[in-house]
Design a protein around this nucleic acid. Structure first.
Lengths: 167, 167
DNA sequence: ATTAAGTTTCAATATTTTTTGAAAGTTTAA
DNA sequence: TTAAACTTTCAAAAAATATTGAAACTTAAT
């Protein structure tokens, strides 16, 4: 496989992965392009490479910047703005985990807590609702905590958790 | 909050969560409904509760069964088929992790491996492509392994990993 | 203050995804 | 074997989502 083929394969795979995860194709592809580019790219560069419109490029770059995984960079003496992606994979994972937790997981956890906290009324259906949403709450809350600890490389957390388990 | 309100809140939240994760709304809502139902439900029951068509219900029940988190159940003497969901949250997590890994994560890992394995040609762009996709490959492969071990409750794995770290 | 270079916004359009509903298919009982 | 009860399929319609492109906006140099 030659460079161009590998590059296209990576960009399109990353693009469809995005769709699958609630991030749109253009956004994921722009990220992919910047991720493997040794140089900062201008808006023109990105539009040309990916064959997408100026508006689309602008909107999705904004979103990537909101996620904290792409940054603006200005070359001295040039009017145009350039874009670079976060290049460290740990930092990328940390940032993505943080944003997904904040935008998607936390709100669901909040609802699960509310719903599982309703008053028992003695009926089987209420009991089941409480039991099952409580189970999901516990799972989601644990998973969220764990994920954040792991990507934040809180090595110590693992130790502490284990000590608790052993005691 | 009363039962009906809590129920609706749960179903609609679970439904939008689905959309966000590449599972369609109807599929997620059917799952939510079965998850909190103390009784098996028929197709009619589901259609009525969620106001969705027969076709939609049938297709999405099939998908839930493919995911291994909903099962058919026949009541003796009745023609109609009833549906129940997996009720154990651990088993649900295991099954979802397994399917997502198989459908989404593994194929991406495969592409990352291919792309990061291309031959160096001395150019900066090729070097960057290899370096950056290799980093993603390592991350994705580790995350996938870890997730599966955790939901499969391979308690021993944690011990083994720690021993390796200590040595 | 004017202009040119560059960026953002957003209504209109295109694309993709989901849903419907009716016809075709299946299964069981008589 | 027929018919009734029920389920599945799939083409068409609807809904949701993404994309375009041109006008509005911003910024910086003259």
């Amino acid at each position: 496989m030659k460079y161009d083929e590998a590059k296209n394969k990576f960009i399109s795979t990353w693009g469809s992965l995005g769709t699958l995860w609630g991030i749109n194709k253009a956004m994921a592809q722009i990220h992919a392009l910047l991720w493997i580019s040794p140089e900062p790219l201008s808006m023109e560069d990105i539009m040309e490479e990916l064959h997408i419109s100026r508006g689309n490029t602008s909107m999705n770059l904004r979103q990537l910047m909101d996620w904290g995984i792409v940054f603006k960079e200005s070359k001295p003496g040039e009017r145009k703005e350039y874009f670079v992606s976060e290049k460290d994979v740990q930092e990328l994972a940390r940032q993505v985990a943080k944003e997904r937790s904040r935008r998607e997981i936390k709100p669901v956890i909040k609802v699960l807590k509310e719903v599982s906290g309703i008053e028992m009324d003695g009926s089987a259906k209420t009991e089941e609702l409480i039991k099952q949403t409580k189970a999901l709450y516990d799972l989601a809350d644990n998973a969220d905590t764990m994920m954040n600890k792991i990507v934040n490389q809180e090595a110590n957390w693992i130790t502490k958790t284990l000590i608790k388990l052993i005691k």
